[in-house]
Design a protein around this nucleic acid. Structure first.
Lengths: 216, 216
DNA sequence: ACAAAAGTGTTTTATATACACCCATGT
DNA sequence: ACATGGGTGTATATAAAACACTTTTGT
């Protein structure tokens, strides 16, 4: 052993990721079914162990990509879960991330330790394996704070061109309360964060103008 | 090895803590001088390895207490630093915390791997060991955001009874800009987060009313 | 014609900012 | 008396919230 190598207890280190998308105006979280003990057959947040060549952000991105096929735009490390007894197999530190993805881009594929994967509405995402209920709850608190500070935080949930009604649906889902349409449109139009396109989405109603993200 | 034990690369896991206090209106960060290689003799943020019986929050609290003798009121995990090459000795994951302490309570005592410890003004806290310059910078960004969202975040820097001028000094230091005295007093008095006491601090000037934290 | 969702302004309220002088004490 | 920091009010600007009807399309 080299003179400079640490000698300390070494927990396993993993990331768990709250991957959210917006489907028909509702937030949905990606869950995977556990194919191995412990909690075999239960639903859990996707996650995985840190590899030697990557940092924690890269680990969370890699896991997100493995589960969804999507390279997430921005990820946010919002908490850690590291109590000694949280995993019955031994000491596992979980570093928790939030990732937002576009529903349309996703192609689910089961990861190595996942028998199945599915999108679940937030109300139906309870009784998860490990302490994942708490991780999800903490993610939603943080999402709400970020969105309140800057609605553009939601852009990664949106397609490249989107209607303001769609963005508002994400905003309301993230905040957990309805907001006034006129006030929301004013907010976004004055924010300089969206660009009005000369394109419209058609449907059994008046065509809706499309907007594109602007700025970072 | 039990059937359920993980087998994965296991980095060492540590917390590094940006411990701040308020001294004569200026924020100061606690630094320790490294007594061992690497970076022997350089200044660094206090920190230490996760023990088997504690979670990361407890680790950060323990380290803070070991360095300052103070049990920090609230600690905030604000980032992680986990790039493979960040520590020349091997893989070390650093989970970064912010802790605010009352200057008056502190009794510095050198930790196990620290030859000395001292409070350093923020402008003079550069050239730190490892990636600690980046950790400190990230902490200050987060501090500013928290304080803007709620000035009561600073209460842990304050003694049990404090003048509004003192609190304002912390507010200005955290935000990095001066604020108007009347506006600040109005903000705090209307916030319901402070209670005016019938006690005053004396000095070579008009006595200053003392206030106590209110609410959580 | 009807259903469905898009789009549009004004008023009110709350919050933030700018700004200057007198007050109470210690020396 | 002087120096030092404590303490106070108003006016303006900006941001947030409340609130209802008309427009355009598809069927």
């Amino acid at each position: 052993m080299s003179a400079y190598v640490y000698d300390h207890p070494r927990p396993a280190v993993a990331t768990d990721i709250v991957i959210l998308c917006l489907d028909a105006g509702d937030l949905r979280v990606l869950l995977v079914r556990r194919g191995a003990e412990p909690f075999r057959g239960d639903w859990a947040l996707p996650g995985g162990f840190l590899q030697e060549s990557e940092d924690l952000d890269a680990c969370a991105r890699r896991e997100t990509r493995e589960e969804t096929g999507v390279r997430p735009g921005r990820i946010l490390q919002f908490a850690n879960f590291s109590q000694p007894g949280r995993d019955p197999r031994g000491r596992v530190i979980s570093v928790a991330y939030l990732a937002l993805v576009r529903a349309g881009d996703v192609r689910l594929k089961a990861g190595s330790d996942a028998a199945e994967a599915e999108w679940r509405g937030l109300a139906e995402a309870r009784g998860l394996a490990f302490d994942h209920d708490a991780i999800l709850a903490a993610a939603l608190v943080r999402l709400s704070a970020e969105v309140r500070a800057d609605p553009a935080f939601l852009f990664p949930l949106m397609p490249p061109a989107f209607t303001l009604a769609r963005l508002q649906a994400g905003y309301e889902a993230a905040l957990g309360r309805p907001v006034d349409k006129r006030n929301f449109r004013k907010l976004m139009e004055d924010s300089g964060r969206v660009q009005a396109l000369e394109a419209f989405e058609r449907g059994p109603h008046r065509p809706a103008r499309l907007y594109a993200p602007l700025g970072d």
